[in-house]
């Protein structure tokens, strides 16, 4: 590893999970992350309030870093750094 700052502080991939009910947003997040490399950042947007609980829990269980967890007017937004 070089001493450079992480190149992926911004999302490289997005997942639109709006309209999906839990656990589908978590399943789609998991499937997407499986295809990403360590250090890449995924942005997830979802509408089911269950994600506020489930996405952070899923990240903790897998050791991924939750960089952003935000409740907006119409949806919820997350940035997840792949571990």
């Amino acid at each position: 590893m070089s001493g450079e700052p992480s190149p992926h502080t911004r999302p490289t991939t997005r997942l639109d999970a709006r309209g999906l009910l839990c656990p589908l947003p978590v399943i789609r997040t998991q499937d997407k992350i499986r295809k990403l490399k360590v250090g890449e950042v995924l942005e997830v947007v979802a509408t089911d309030p269950g994600v506020l609980h489930d996405i952070p829990a899923w990240c903790r269980v897998h050791g991924h870093r939750l960089l952003v967890s935000e409740q907006r007017a119409d949806d919820y937004r997350f940035h997840i750094e792949v571990a």
Binding site: L21, C22, V26, D48, G50, D54, A57, W58, V61
Partner: peptide
Amino acid sequence: GHTHAIRKKDRSRQKRNNALWVAEQLGIKL
């Protein structure tokens, strides 16, 4: 999972995904 997200009265109660909760308690991946 999802049905708790549909009915409003269930929304106020913060519900967890029990399978994820179990994994977290055990410290295993799910």
